[in-house]
Design a protein around this nucleic acid. Sequence first.
DNA 1: TTGAAAGCGTTACCAT
DNA 2: ATGGTAACGCTTTCAA
Lengths: 355, 355
Amino acid sequence: MSEGRRPVTATDVAKRAGVSQSAVSRAFTPGASIAEETRRKVEEAARALGYRPNAIARSLTTRRSRIIGVAAAYLQNQFYPEVLEAMSRGLRARGYQLLLLMPEHGRHADPLLEEVMAWQVDGLILASTTLSSALAEQCRSAGIPVLLFNRTTRAPHVSSVTGQNFRGGQRIAELLAAGGHRRFGFVAGIENSSTSRDRERGFTTWLARHGFAPPRRATGHYSFQAAAAAARDLLRDGDRPDAIFCANDHMAIAVAEVARHEFGLRIPEDLSLVGFDDTAPASWRSYALTSFSQPLQPMVDAAVALVCEMIENPAAPTRQAVIPGELVIRASTRLPASGWVERDGQRIWRGTESG
Amino acid sequence: MSEGRRPVTATDVAKRAGVSQSAVSRAFTPGASIAEETRRKVEEAARALGYRPNAIARSLTTRRSRIIGVAAAYLQNQFYPEVLEAMSRGLRARGYQLLLLMPEHGRHADPLLEEVMAWQVDGLILASTTLSSALAEQCRSAGIPVLLFNRTTRAPHVSSVTGQNFRGGQRIAELLAAGGHRRFGFVAGIENSSTSRDRERGFTTWLARHGFAPPRRATGHYSFQAAAAAARDLLRDGDRPDAIFCANDHMAIAVAEVARHEFGLRIPEDLSLVGFDDTAPASWRSYALTSFSQPLQPMVDAAVALVCEMIENPAAPTRQAVIPGELVIRASTRLPASGWVERDGQRIWRGTESG
DNA sequence: TTGAAAGCGTTACCAT
DNA sequence: ATGGTAACGCTTTCAA
């Protein structure tokens, strides 16, 4: 009620508890040496006054903000919101806050650098395939730990967490070939995205090695609209693919819509379709999209652990964590006679090769 | 290169520029009185040293963090990620950062209070229908401006930004009645959510006033799985509804899946379906969901403007902003002979009543 | 317009 | 274990 109430400080608490302000600080510092009796008095006074340590002042003296910047973009793709949600929880569990950094639409993430530096973030997670590598480089050279999530960069010595992009692409080629397909298509994400590139390389490498013609390709820029356009491109002429692998589920859904509703194709009778990520919509019955999974929680757990480790031990060597996924077979692709197992009500592609 | 490089401070810049540290501060403070020549010298030195003002230190003295806490949950619903994205950009444009606060799964948002207080956020946006009102109350009484987004609360004197929930519900009833439906169903979100309640009230009020039987109802808890279960409930017995209004698109999609794939119903021949929010998936051809829109950008713009206003003028009266939407008719409902107009390739329900 | 100096609310380092 | 005191990096008086 009293409007002009000044926020309660440690000094207020100290006064009330009859101890020094330092003692109050100790009472709120986990490992500090303080008598049980003193702590009790402080806690009581703090409770009575409604005191909470000021994180900003603390950051100033400790020179650690306990803030992690997370740069994201492209939240239309269901994968990222769920990542964000899990990251926020994961970081919080370790006492960090998540500062959300969204680049302006122009796609250059570099203005974000201002915020990153100004707020002295303890670490930065780049959770977007589309963000510029320059930002990562600048932060690194400013001594801020940078972790790439769901992407890598050409520059070595940058830690990252990704799924099995290359292997996923291979597995998908395997499954489609086993399903009797011969004319393949690929819808890429953004061209210079490592994620899309690796998935494509896995796909084409396997096909080439097994004597198949290279897939026709089009670019979907990770966007729904652009992926729809890419689908029109691939499906237009007579020699259209009978199986299309899209660099992620979000684009695969766009392709499914175009194939069905604009070209009247049946999936998988006329066209098999595979995505990547295994996001929620992939399991919606209308799409029943075969997809190589990127297990959310393990990936996020790894990212949180890694970034914390980098903060605590800046000298630690960089690491590229690759979290294993699996190819979940649904109704958008033909089911080969063998090569898969059933587990928890899902069909998992085991592959035709050992290993 | 040099590992142990200490961050550059204003004092470093001052030394190099041959001015006082205060002058450096002024050079970076928009309205400050400083000679052009001095500013130039400071800027040059700052550039040379790579100086950026430390936002944390600034916050400590100004007693304004320029951080807005945004509490969200339920990012599975496409509406919220897009809100988050727009909010981050909108806040940034006004010099604020977005601290993402995700409650633990237990659904009690109250532990978030710790962070809100510790970080001295300048304002708090509660962007989730499911977050506890208690948090809002505690913040308000701590003098932190609170804005409810896409929800309201029983307590008066809390500012909010919502869509036209009540009116939307009415419009939907109108459209369905005009389409010749007689047996209505409603899938609620979380029971004590103002948003779901208002939408339902609009729906049932209109139906009652026009002599229709009240809709059968089930609860989807804003969750995909629960909404699917609700659909099974509503569709199971012989006297099933021939039109279902779901409190949001996310649940409507779940209902569509169940109706089609478990009950073999055709939409809209056997069952009309309406959602709310008009999120991206609503326009996907496989669903073509009729939906009352909540225009994202206007809602977010209003929220950002409002929260900034509350920060700058804490004495300002509270406001409940209601952002108008419209009922977009797609193929998931029968199209009445009249009552709608075509605009930008979309069919908009104009209604049978004036006003 | 400018510089000196006093905070802002903590933590960290001293002695004690 | 405790209290005093010096930072932390900035903004904001206040004199000059």
